[in-house]
Amino acid sequence: MSDVTTLAGELCSFIDREVSLDPDTPVEPHTDLLTTGLVDSLGAMEIVHWLEEARNLDIDPVDITIENFQTVEKMVALAKRLTVG
């Protein structure tokens, strides 16, 4: 469980630090990243790369979807699924 919490925190701070276009909106695990303009198309790819490298995950293109990347919470759920699977 602690691993999941850590991943959520790390992702939030990574997006805040490296990806977000709006420094005034802190990224929380439930923040909608896609309809708010916080993350553009290259930003979305940076997040995918970060997850692949930092967590050594192999993300299939078919999983790179709106449903899996709308919020940090959903990304964590995806990472968990891929690790277990």
């Binding site: 896609l34 309809t35 790179i64």
Partner: peptide, 14 residues
């Protein structure tokens, strides 16, 4: 198509 569809190609193609 929404803007997120255009940023997530797998969602677009689906």
């Amino acid at each position: 198509m929404s803007e997120p569809h255009l940023r997530f190609p797998a969602s677009f193609t689906e």
